[in-house]
Design a protein around this nucleic acid. Sequence first.
DNA 1: CAATCATATTCCCATATGGGCATACGTCAA
DNA 2: TTGACGTATGCCCATATGGGAATATGATTG
Lengths: 113, 113
Amino acid sequence: MARAATTSDVFNAIAEPQRRDILVLLRAGERPVTELANELGMTQPRASKHLRVLKEVGLVRDRTAGKQRLYGLEASGLRPVHEWTGGFARFWNESFDRLDAYVQDLKQARQEE
Amino acid sequence: MARAATTSDVFNAIAEPQRRDILVLLRAGERPVTELANELGMTQPRASKHLRVLKEVGLVRDRTAGKQRLYGLEASGLRPVHEWTGGFARFWNESFDRLDAYVQDLKQARQEE
DNA sequence: CAATCATATTCCCATATGGGCATACGTCAA
DNA sequence: TTGACGTATGCCCATATGGGAATATGATTG
């Protein structure tokens, strides 16, 4: 078996930096493919392919507007990722807490001099 | 070019479900490879390979303890992912806000009856 | 040193990828 | 209908993957 399909999972979909770039750009509003491609310095087919992946995992929606097709953000799909990583927050704060405790100790020691 | 190396980027490293499972397990404390493999129903070489990836992106640390090698969580590496996704929070709250506004309108309309 | 337990690595496979290029498809206007 | 524009697809490539099986490497104990 190879890697799982990127189109099957949000974690996989955002593993690709260019797709993350697209999502960030879309925070500013809907955009047609060509514009995205230009702003990110990639070819149109490439942008289309990435958008397809993003759409299949529900991170992006599209609607036809005349000759163009506008892509828009569907950010709720990122929520699970945010929450999953959030489940580790207490661990990355841990060292901070320890450092803080250490500093407090130092302070107290100094006062007792 | 194929996909970027999973060992080069935290986003990529956590794109694989089994690696996420490992990280979750490690929240309960350090563990040797074999134990992780057993608890997750995977073979030892498989677990070792995943742990190697996690280590290369800094999500895991290891230390030798007698015959065993204990792997432990290095959660701070997940922080960038949490923050990146957090940058989209206002968007996934948006629909909520709209719904809320709608409900408020309904309430007010009812009072004015 | 040898035996044993714990873990990492190597080799091989099937598969999914991201990219480029050419081209098909869709939609609108003349 | 025919252009012309905007976008999606198909085909091909090089490469990275995750998995299995066997085996190498490491460390401890007798």
